[in-house]
Design a binder for these strands. Structure first.
Lengths: 211, 211, 211, 211
DNA sequence: CATGAATGAGTCTTCATTCAT
DNA sequence: GATGAATGAAGACTCATTCAT
């Protein structure tokens, strides 16, 4: 008798195989959800996209809704990893770097982000717990930056919350058309240029300095 | 049958009645689509919301898809009316006024706007023909304003297209949470304050003027 | 405008039509459940048996389970009506008459009874709330009869509960093979003969009177 | 491969191991079938109850249906063994002893009996070949007893077939609620008392002897 | 032999659309 | 025109069975 649980040396391999397959399914589902929406997508399409049978899908997820939630959660990790590397924003350059990193993360996982954004328009849980949570996470960095610069006299005494929110809006206006597939994915150089232009606009406005 | 075409004097009244009923249905459908999404809504819900029978709905629209398209088109008129009143943006005040007007239009027809925004994430036709069309329509005003002020030396030589796009992003960041129901609808005074803050940020940035 | 709710004179007719259709579906479903069991039956079969489309079925019942419960409840009414006519059992003849009536009721609605009996083996709710409830209802009559006759010295001092329960078993042994389709449905004369034989056995036993 | 047929000395042990495992599976399956019914049970549940993998089950049985049939057949052996020990019913005591033995056999293998009874309502093969077969087997003993006692003048000239059938009904009324889990399993003393009460009722009826 | 992931036919249920009243 | 019952195609999900490891 080889013992019901198989040799433990193989357990790890099995777990990795399951994990890999789950990721494949999530990726396939994200692609389908991103273009047809959650309610407009079918399990059949997702299974076809993942190149497995419909029933197999239920060996990895409890149902359609759980796939959506797994996508939402999976899209959290890369952003979180990235944000933890952000120490403190001190200079113009720091903000540009942050913007670039966020661009990279969002665009590198486009189907996940797109699924998230589309569903946040309809699902209050996703809006509150996920999208708003992340935006506020980013907003905290920006607000800390703004507040500090106001304190040291470099910035005018603007409302940090409102301002950070509008900064997020500015950057969103750049990222969303790309995510949505309306604008082609920009080269890294172009991304940097966009980030710089946005930050410059933010810092100095468009009006000519009268001084 | 008393007469094939009815008395012509009553034709107008009949047309108005039909038109009124169509609007009621659209309004009801927009409310349902706004919260559940197109694919997640049912004809039964829409009919219940409009307080008519399901079959009646098909006397006014060819099908579910046609209702969506009618909503999309119906949301065009108010914005268009408003934009036609906008002559030329010359001053800070003009831009603020434009922003306020757009706020008013979008928020006064929240269910329509929300349906539109949610569906634009999924439907290429709606994105291209409707949402992008309108944003470019607004962008043209902004770009003309920016270009003119650059020409007369009031503005720095920024890229008008990119800048106008980011301005739209800033204002979107204010409007979207309201439309989405995340932020309560602001009072007219608050709206004006928000518009002013955004325009000021746009014009002068947040950095202290060194002059 | 003919007023949304139609003329009230037609409401009654509509209600009757719905009620009639519900009964048809219940009858069809009972036939299917009786031979294949609840879990082994499909909505498709029931719909085919009732000669309607699958979807139509859901206009009359919330789901498969609700059909089962409706069958169970529908089978209650005839028995209840019958039991309410039973005044008090006084003579041998009264008991025979009761047995005959119960035979008639159970057999006249065979598919319902059979569905009920088969499901009571699996479903605790049906067993407790329905089958046991009815058996106890009948048992009460029998116990009252037995107790009264013991009191007036006609019966030996047996345990009324146990005895009534065994009487039910005796009669069940006659009815069940008929319901189950193992024994052909007996003629009214034969039914009476069976009831008489059972009651005689019950009253006097099989042993020869030694007196 | 070291040898095609293994050492013959070990064949018997292997057969016993297989047989033991089959019995374990049958026991597990009977428990599941007894409470959920055949159609309502899944292979996964049975495998879990037997603490083996789903696939393993197919090494011992050809499919779900075969497990049911094996349960039905397995429940035959103990009853048969018991019935072969019954010589001839001569006295009241013999009948009581038979009843007690049948109680013991049925209750000691409750899940098997229950599966059998529930399925006999739906499956004609099981009803005919198995349940009716066994009841007639028991009935023969009873009929022989009754016929003999009529012949020697101890019993009245009742119909032996009908009477034996109603006796079975009486005893069923005691056993079924226990099997079904509605009545707690009675102690051996209580079982004897029930058997005695039933036989007494059967022999002497409930009416007071007029002699 | 044991395992359990893969499969896809089959189940219950929903819903856009039609049509007789 | 208004109604809502009827329809059946399509969707999410289940499960008996197979088979590679």
């Amino acid at each position: 008798m080889t013992n019901g649980k198989r040799c433990r040396l193989f357990e790890g391999r099995r777990q990795r195989r399951i994990s890999r397959r789950r990721d494949e399914i999530l990726k396939a589902a994200a692609c389908v959800f991103a273009t047809k929406g959650y309610a407009g997508s079918t399990i059949k399409e997702i299974a076809a996209q993942a190149d497995i049978a419909e029933g197999t899908l239920y060996n990895y997820f409890d149902g359609k809704r759980e796939i959506l939630l797994a996508i939402v959660n999976a899209s959290q990790a890369p952003l979180e990893t990235m944000l933890q590397e952000v120490c403190e924003l001190r200079e113009r350059e720091d903000v540009i770097a942050l913007a670039e990193k966020i661009f990279d993360v969002l665009i590198s996982q486009t189907p996940f982000t797109r699924t998230l954004m589309a569903e946040a328009w309809l699902d209050d849980v996703i809006l509150q717990d996920v999208v708003m949570g992340r935006l506020q996470r980013i907003g905290q960095h920006l607000q800390a930056f703004i507040t500090a610069r106001i304190a040291d006299g470099a910035f005018r005494p603007v409302d940090p919350v409102l301002t950070s929110w509008m900064v997020i809006g500015m950057f969103s206006a750049i990222v969303i058309p790309i995510l949505r597939g309306h604008t082609p994915v920009p080269s890294p150089e172009r991304r940097r240029a966009l980030a710089e232009a946005a930050v410059d606009l933010l810092l100095d406005g468009i009006r000519v300095r009268e001084g």
